[in-house]
Design a protein around this nucleic acid. Structure first.
Lengths: 205, 205
DNA sequence: ACTGGTTTAGTACCAGGTTCTAAGATGTAC
DNA sequence: GTACATCTTAGAACCTGGTACTAAACCAGT
């Protein structure tokens, strides 16, 4: 029983893995048609490969969504705001987890740090609409998986209605400065003044 | 049969909606225990309220995850790279969809545009490791839901090994410039030189 | 006492499985 | 060839979490 000409099974199982990865919503019945083997074989294969049944797969996916939706306000403010003094200063905290890093180096991708700082800079402005006009940023040192990034924002100047505010943000891991940015935030208590050629780009959540 | 003292049913149904929203993984059996009514009542209530059975709920959630995972390469390069001439230039395209905008204003959040530009600036550098050291960016006009954002990156200067590259990125919607950024990318053909105090912050996917 | 919405009970049935037992098929080794 | 092992298929019993449908019981108002 050398592995000569005993590939079919392995091949089939590889295909099976591939098919299910590609379409987790497939039933064993449908798999029999695709792989041209009996349903028992499909089930044995799943056992061997540790692939759960359809319903379990869907449940796992649903749980993942649910957890994500619960724990990751990814599309809202990035990072948890723990202190906020409108028009003065704000602090937010953001923990770097798997989905924020390059898998090879475990270093956080820049846009997540930027997003945290940008969110905070926008949040700290006490106006109906606040949009980032421009930013000047600097990544001081790399942030690794598991590190907690604390961003502190300070409003440096506010001009009259329909004008800009300057906000400085410093992000730290422990005592160490890791990121620094100067944001110019366009602000307005009224509706968006003009869309064309404006600075407008961000508003509050 | 006025609505005097006929609330229990309505109340129960409200509770039911609430419980299921709060925990979509609950079975009818478990609901009977919570609401102290028979399983048939639970089922009648679900019918009336148009709440699908457990499995359907999980399936819907799973489908949502799946679509998101498919459409959002959020954790890899943001935007699809459609042209890339290493150390020279690159183009990527990124369509603004629901999850990228503020729901109230339909305006794209700044960090997504930044992420597209940043990803591209990093991708265009022909080195093993490329990390964003700093960036100077400007949001020229707001980008709305459904617009396709085309980012063009140009490498302006490259210095010797273990040094920096300057990359300019311009993002357009149609003919209109919407975003502009100057990136300084730290590059190295070798491993990360020094972690402490360095510029390092981004690498390639 | 009759009516009508509400609740409960019970049965048949279904999808998409698991678990187990057992029988063929297909080598392969000697 | 025959014995052994692996692989594949078949079949039946059982499970969960339901749907669909029928029917009875429970109020409450009038």
């Amino acid at each position: 029983m050398r592995d000569i000409e005993r590939l079919p099974k392995r091949q089939r199982q590889q295909q099976l893995v591939h098919i299910i990865e590609d379409n987790p919503f497939i039933t064993d019945q449908e798999l029999t048609r695709m792989l041209r083997v009996s349903i028992q074989t499909i089930r044995l294969d799943r056992m061997e490969l540790g692939i759960p049944e359809l319903r379990e797969r869907l449940k796992l996916m649903a749980e993942r969504t649910y957890d994500q939706v619960r724990s990751l306000p990814l599309h809202e403010v990035i990072g948890d705001i723990i202190d906020l003094q409108l028009d003065k200063s704000g602090i937010s905290i953001f923990e770097i987890s798997e989905e924020h890093v390059f898998s090879r180096t475990q270093i956080a991708r820049g846009h997540h740090l930027f997003a945290q700082a940008n969110s905070l800079a926008v949040a700290v402005i006490n106006d109906e609409i606040a949009l980032t006009a421009s930013a000047d940023i600097r990544f001081v040192r790399s942030v690794k998986l598991g590190e907690k990034c604390i961003a502190k924002a300070y409003v440096r100047s506010i001009s009259g209605e329909r004008s800009k505010a300057k906000v400085e943000v410093f992000s730290y891991v422990g005592e160490e400065l890791v990121f620094q940015g100067h944001f110019i935030i366009f602000r307005s208590t009224t509706e968006i003044v003009s869309v064309e050629g404006g600075y407008s780009h961000e508003d509050r959540h």
